[in-house]
């Protein structure tokens, strides 16, 4: 199992454990983490699973793709260099302990 910490906009932390191969979005949705909607189920069509990867984890989560970049343009909250669609981050053992921050709003 891989541990992920979601830090809500108000600072509240939720720690969950997810199986390898699931996405950061799926892990949030199946554990009822508020602040990630993921309405399109991970097909990069809705930009409601926006998150900011914690600085310490940036290198490990990798770069966003061009398609992801374009979809992020539509996100409801500010997009920064650390913005990702959490459906596009797949969990593997190298991400055990990952911390992501959640935006103020997704819709």
């Amino acid at each position: 199992m891989i541990r992920v910490t979601y830090v809500a906009h108000d600072g509240a932390e939720t720690v969950i454990e997810a199986e390898e191969g699931t996405s950061v979005m799926q892990a949030a949705v199946s554990n009822d983490v508020d602040g990630i909607v993921g309405e399109c189920g991970g097909s990069m069509m809705c930009a409601t699973c926006h998150c900011y990867v914690d600085e310490a984890w940036e290198a490990k989560t990798g770069q966003r793709s061009d398609d992801e970049d374009e979809m992020l343009e539509g996100a409801a909250s500010e997009v920064t260099g650390r913005s990702r669609l959490s459906c596009q981050i797949k969990l593997d053992p190298s991400l055990d302990g990952l911390v992501v921050h959640l935006p103020e709003e997704q819709l």
Binding site: M45, A47, D67, E70, E73, G74, A75, A76
Partner: peptide
């Protein structure tokens, strides 16, 4: 589908709408 959808969805994003 993705390519055609992307072409129109740019006009429908929260940022543009707001």
């Amino acid at each position: 589908h993705f390519v055609e959808r992307k072409a129109i969805s740019k006009a429908l994003t929260p940022t543009r709408i707001k």
